[in-house]
Design a protein around this nucleic acid. Structure first.
Lengths: 254, 254
DNA sequence: CGAACCTTTGAACGGTGTCAATTCTGGTGG
DNA sequence: CCACCAGAATTGACACCGTTCAAAGGTTCG
């Protein structure tokens, strides 16, 4: 948990000691907690500050009047969202927890001061925004063009790479609190079909998924089944990727 | 075409004369042109500056290796894209024209200087980025949860409101250069099904669409068929919306 | 050890996709 | 001014992916 943000941003830009200290200072702000499956802010409400996830998983989502619900983004530890959102009059989406969550709310003035005092952090924040937008575009592609199997596989690939970037993977797998209903909301499918698709992925020996434990058995094959290429995550300096399954690399194939 | 940007940004923030002049100066930069159906920049290439659309329509899109293609955003006159994109090593999506296009390329240093000299413009640019992200989220919802009819109807509603904001609507309709194949790429459907869905919308007397002319017959009913609410476009000061179909209002109905 | 939630299964349905023609339209050259 | 052409729109028949609805197992945790 310590240095989550600094670690992430150093993938993009070198930080000085005082930059790291400033980022650590953010994470040391009085943390808030929320229980699993609760909303932190809802569509229609007035935006508060940016939200920095310290521990646990959350999601952005929207709902239609008749109850249909679509997840828009998965928020993992180290993720920042709603940056600058307070410029808008009201929220156009909701932020809800998946697990119990520890986070900090960072009011706009705090972020402004931070950006002024630390130009490299300002750059890193812009980079963070760009990457979030890129992920949103990839999700658009996911929903619009990929088949059920490809969508689920793609989501697994993305979660793995993102968790890996903050040190939350272990030996070719990760701890995943998502239910099949969550996966359904993220991929625009029904829970029933998610279940069948996961069975398919397991039958192909691409992954194992028991309880909260996801294990990726064949990274390259999973990537190609998903048509996953990590380019949109814009991770520039990938020196210390552990590699999945021992010898396989996480480099783009093609 | 003159004052396109200023007009749009004044929906969000008041501008001073010198702000307007600076925006006009941008649009006066040596304009580039591109023919219809050509790419301006492709995935994998190195980002250049921001792109400001002066005239014509374009789109952002991504493709999968096997040729499946998904439109990510519709770019209309007055739209700005790829702001800050040059911070990233390579493009993760492509920008292609739909019609013949007039645009300007704005190198990062130009935009930086502009933001430093004109704080209100800097705010407006951030607002622009936030709205673009909100639209991307709405497209995610569109693809993930809405039916074919809802998707097409929603896209038409969005295009109308956005064109209206830059004065490109006429009497409850607008000039639309999109082919049914374009609509298919935007909505994640096949061209054949787009065709049938448009017939459905026409049979319900919600729209007319002949050639390039789109006429919205019953705005409120189209909105509710689409579950469209313009809140995500974050148009704050909507004093001079002409209203569609004479007496109908564009306010949200809930 | 029960209750709540999650996962899994089966069968039938239906929205969209696929494929292949055919008709229409706008722009072009003779 | 008209014949022509390429692209766009339209149509029909059929297949299939994913949904729907309902019920049965599993798991977790108080």
């Amino acid at each position: 948990m310590p240095q989550l943000l600094a670690r992430k941003y150093e993938q993009f830009i070198g930080l000085a000691d005082d930059d790291r200290a400033a980022l650590q200072h953010l994470a040391d702000s009085p943390a808030r907690t929320a229980r699993a499956r609760t909303d932190i802010i809802r569509e229609g409400e007035q935006p508060r500050g940016a939200m920095l996830i310290l521990d646990g998983w959350a999601s952005l989502y929207k709902t239609l009047e008749d109850g249909r619900r679509q997840m828009l983004a998965m928020l993992l530890p180290g993720d920042l969202c709603e940056l600058n959102a307070s410029m808008l009059r009201e929220m156009d989406h909701s932020l809800g927890t998946i697990t119990a969550l520890t986070y900090v709310e960072l009011p706009a003035p705090v972020m402004e001061a931070l950006a002024i005092d630390h130009p490299r952090i300002a750059s890193a924040l812009t980079w963070d925004l760009l990457v979030a937008a890129a992920i949103q575009r990839e999700w658009t592609l996911n929903l619009g063009q990929r088949s059920a199997l490809e969508r689920i596989a793609h989501l697994i690939c993305e979660m793995f790479v993102r968790l890996n970037a903050v040190g939350l993977t272990q030996a070719g797998g990760f701890d995943c609190p998502l239910t099949q209903t969550d996966l359904a909301e993220a991929t625009g499918m029904t829970p029933v079909h998610v279940n069948r698709t996961l069975q398919d992925l397991r039958a192909r020996r691409l992954i194992e998924w028991r309880g909260r434990s996801v294990v990726i058995l064949r990274w390259q094959d999973l990537c190609s089944a998903a048509m996953f290429s990590p380019n949109y995550l814009h991770i520039e300096r990938s020196e210390d990727h552990p590699g999945v399954g021992g010898q396989q690399s996480m480099e783009r194939s093609t």
